[in-house]
Design a protein around this nucleic acid. Structure first.
Lengths: 236, 236
DNA sequence: GAAAATAATATGTCTGCACATAATAAGCGT
DNA sequence: ACGCTTATTATGTGCAGACATATTATTTTC
């Protein structure tokens, strides 16, 4: 076959991707403008169209290209980037820094949602929610305080789980992957949480709000506040 | 042909992906355990192996499966998730909320890096850096204060750019896409920034640190502090 | 029995080819 | 001109077959 030897006769989709990436960076293709179509590029690189397709598809999902049928492929003006945030699974985060992880269940109750939670999770207000407060520690030092609401209608199984042993997040990740969700970062003063995080009332703390859904059904709303000086790190 | 009519005889990779996703969620395949190989799945779904491959590859990049040659494909114990953060291009962020965006250059100077910057960007200390402080506004209200260092050795062209018109970030995104970088969120007190953000000295502000690289060359180190009450939102 | 050579296996990818689909462009009738 | 129908075109996807590559399993050799 023509491609058998692997060294030169065949072109890899990665090499095409890299070449195209170089051209985009060098502005050989102007931002916003059309690039040659797949057939032409395949001819240029001397490969099958499918190979070019793979390369361009990859650049599109990476956010450097915009592709539309018939309309063609064009260079994105402002590349969108994806951050691979190693899903703040607190345990892994703590242990990766060499510290010993510990978890304490503080409160557990079944309640109806207060207004903020009701709105966030788009509930009617009559649902039964599991309300859990917990503390996560690194080397016995408070690391994060979590206040979480879980919709029992969506996750009935969690009602019988012993949350003193397994943290809600760990259980949820393991048993009920979400389909989508949102995440918000904000800064606030520790306030009442200072008691758990062992800091001053007016210390600034980083708070992360997370809402997850299983299609149209709300799963959980979590408010996680980290001890002062903590940094949430993401890779780009 | 067998697949021509498009309605039933052919199976789409998306449908296979969805079916497999359902099985993973239902724990038909136990976490950590092997799933059938591509040939068997292709037989089950009545399609070509390439189609199964596409589906499984997608689930792997989404973080639900782990794939290794010869070793096979297994269900990840704790799915890794990716957040598509709409690259905090401040202008777009502000305008999407319906507000008018404005930008003001506060300071511009060429300096040698202080210790923190030198370490972060792994510099020797003798390099010339462009040091820029700027303020970004939404409807004339301070929205974000930025303190940025740009390595002129990596980005010589920016020295002649009129940064009163174009913000450094906009220029960089447009002219020099980075290959990788990191991002950190933290909470701190406004301190001296309170003057620009028009808030109290001890108000908690969300700060985002961003460092970007072009392969092994450092591009820029930015410290962006948002006005109190601002939330940084990411989609999962 | 341990190390080295060899086989087996699952995923990775490329090739041609065909048809599907979405969106634009062209043609046409009024 | 205007709106409608009908090409045309670029990307999207499927199939069968072949080879590539990374591991793991097995056998051979000392």
């Amino acid at each position: 076959m023509v491609k058998g030897d692997g060294s030169d006769s065949s072109v890899s989709w990665q090499s095409i991707r890299d070449t195209m990436m170089t051209r985009i960076r060098a502005q050989d293709y102007a931002p916003g403008e059309l690039i040659p179509n797949e057939v032409d590029l395949a001819a240029e690189f001397g490969c099958a169209r499918a190979t070019v397709n793979r390369a361009l598809r990859d650049l599109a999902t990476s956010g450097f290209l915009d592709r539309r049928r018939k309309a063609g492929t064009r260079v994105r003006e402002a590349p969108r980037r994806k951050a691979t945030l190693s899903i703040p699974l607190t345990r892994a985060e703590v242990e990766s820094s060499g510290a010993r992880y510990d978890y304490r269940l503080l409160e557990r109750a079944i309640e109806t949602p207060p207004p903020l939670v009701r709105e966030t999770l788009k509930l009617s207000g009559t649902e039964r929610l599991l309300h859990v407060k917990s503390l996560h520690l690194a080397d016995d030092v408070p690391h994060m305080f979590e206040d979480r609401w879980i919709v029992l209608e969506t996750v009935p199984a969690i009602e019988t789980v012993d949350l003193a042993k397994t943290s809600p997040n760990v259980w949820l990740v393991r048993h009920l992957p979400y389909t989508h969700g949102t995440m918000e970062f904000l800064a606030e003063t520790a306030g009442a949480r200072s008691r758990h995080l062992i800091c001053a009332d007016d210390d600034p703390v980083l708070t992360m709000l997370r809402v997850t859904w299983l299609d149209a059904s709300p799963i959980t709303f979590a408010r996680q506040s980290f001890s002062p000086s903590h940094r949430m790190r993401l890779e780009l």
